[in-house]
Nucleic acid binder design. Structure first.
Lengths: 209, 209, 209, 209
DNA sequence: CATGAATGAGCATTCATTCAT
DNA sequence: GATGAATGAATGCTCATTCAT
């Protein structure tokens, strides 16, 4: 007679988070209103608070799960034996819409937008800063490990500090990702080729003098 | 009957813009209120509307003048004969606080914050998108010209497309600049050294295979 | 098909009423929420409505049973042959914490708070006004009867109208009880001694001129 | 051209305070809404916040000014040479509506209601508790001084501690004042006569044994 | 020029209550 | 009996903007 169904509850949470993601991408964390999120999620204003304690909590949950997904994907792509190839695969994955053109492009754009919003938010919201920093540290660690392994194999320059090199590479990749916002007129394919070149030259052994 | 003094008027506009910059850096474009800007600028709420038609207008004007300053500084630093040296100078200028430590660091952080905010805003505000894009295009043009000249002189790799290379370089620099937000624990000096290495390897002739 | 157990039902009602009492004392009738009462009573929000039709109904039931308890205690203490002694006993009972200091003091304070809240509520809620008035009339009747008996015995001034004197005495006692709220710094023991003096002088025969 | 008119501002504050008083008396501090106060004061919801920082601030200001008025009136009535006469005058002033029957009675009732509400609020709002306590302490001091003087003149019993006696008298008066809420059916005139008797017997010299 | 009074829509959040299970 | 999901109106408060002076 009395049951708590944690599965349904969790599913609803995810639904709301997705709706919130669409609203945040369109209007920003501050610009999106609770009522717009509720409309998008097709629930009443009051009911949202059975799932999240506050707007802040929604933002944090969304940032956290979003970054976890990114992390998982990155982790998967780093399985390659060659870090250069892995990075390039990751870049292409993150910046191109391969199949279901229209819909995917929207998701892509929304993800980039959320990413930049999180960075901006991190600058003034300590909770967000910590989420972003933890995620960044994790990803950096993964890449650093990969670089170290590759160094031992002689695939990449052995004089580079793996951690610092990872930091710089990820920053550069992020910067190039943001170009969609800054310079939407540039051809994505050409940018990615040039980025590949940059990465190869940076990492290739013997190029360090 | 006497006309307004256009010089004074322009000065007041600049004062307000500076005050707005401080508020926006602290609270974001949406988070900062007109009344807080007026307090900071020491004018009354109503009076602000003699200088700007709306909050939107303030945001746009601030973005525009802010980017013009950045542009001017970049232009000045690109005067060097060697683009690699120029870029590194620019990076250091943009990421370190040389003299009046405390105050400067605050300004630095505020500028970075505003920069990211503008990027985020550009994603949803077409007016902001155009401002950011125009500025980006200008800076990219400058750097591309410089790279082209250097290619002719044989200082850098001649196989690189100057425009694309400039785009990638600027993106990477921006990404590294944003690291302060993502990973505040990393040592700035080391990051800049690594970035220099990246740029050198990317541009140095003969490294292309 | 089996009927509800009226004993259990009544017990649950009492449990809820007690929980409600704690919440109301802490946050007031308006300030306490149904959900906080349900938490305190360890039942679900919806289930409460099997026992009470509305928040209003809870408030009224709580006021009624609370006053019935007060009434019973008063009735018991008025059993004494001498009304002066009885009143003083009642005052001490109502204003001091004899044994389990800490806990009792909390209960004391909560009761006083509820008492004042009821009075305030009575001013704008006719249902509450009637409850308070009925209770007050009953208690006043008891005391009046007692005074009348004592007058016949010559224990107290015979010129006093018993009903009016009872009203005034009860009011004064209530006022002194409320002093805990108004002037918490005053010593309770001394106040009670002074109140005893007041009562004695008021009632003692021959003091009327 | 530019003027701040503090007189007008202060007048508006008072207007709002009066409107708030009416709303609070009708619905209680918690029950009255900002929007109802604004309707009553004929201003917009937002504009109220130019005059008061919060609802809390309105409540406190209203309590403070209300008690100041009461204090002033009390002070004036205590000018009499005989404290017994003064107190009785005060009681009558506070509990009867002499002239403009209808309107005054409403004010009277509203004042009593607010008084009880303040006491209830003081039990859980420290700010209100302090306001009530400060006022109470002041009034008590006045009365104690008066009693002391009268003791020296031999007008009242010299064995009573003036401060405690003042506390008890004020409490009793308050309790009787609250009777309007508890027992509205009782005749006010008779109650006041009986209260006079109580006071006289309490204070008259020689009645202490 | 410059002020600050004034507006009214909008915000995040809370709450008493209902209902399907 | 008993649960917790669901509602939607209401609350205190903020804000960009306008306007009389």
């Amino acid at each position: 007679m009395r049951k708590i169904d944690p599965v349904k509850h969790e599913q609803k949470r995810r639904d709301i988070l997705e709706a919130a993601g669409r609203c945040f991408a369109k209007d920003g964390f501050r610009g999106a209103s609770i009522s717009s999120i509720c409309s998008e999620a097709k629930i009443s204003a009051g009911h949202l608070y059975h799932y999240f304690a506050s707007k802040e909590a929604i933002i944090e949950a969304m940032a956290a799960t979003g970054l976890e997904h990114a992390e998982a994907r990155f982790n998967h792509l780093m399985k390659s034996d060659n870090p250069i190839e892995g990075l390039i695969a990751e870049i292409e994955q993150a910046n191109t819409q391969s199949c279901s053109a229209q819909q995917h492009q929207i998701d892509m754009r929304a993800k980039k937008q959320l990413h930049v919003d999180m960075l901006a938010e991190a600058g003034r919201n300590p909770a967000m800063a910590e989420i972003v920093n933890q995620h960044s540290t994790k990803i950096r660690g993964m890449l650093a490990t990969l670089l170290e392994t590759a160094q031992k194999r002689g695939q990449i320059d052995q004089t580079l500090d793996p951690d610092l090199a990872a930091a710089i590479l990820l920053s550069a990749m992020e910067g190039v990702g943001n170009m969609t916002m800054r310079d939407p007129e540039l051809d994505m394919k050409k940018k990615l080729d040039m980025l590949s070149t940059l990465i190869k030259r940076f990492l290739t052994p013997g190029s360090g003098k």
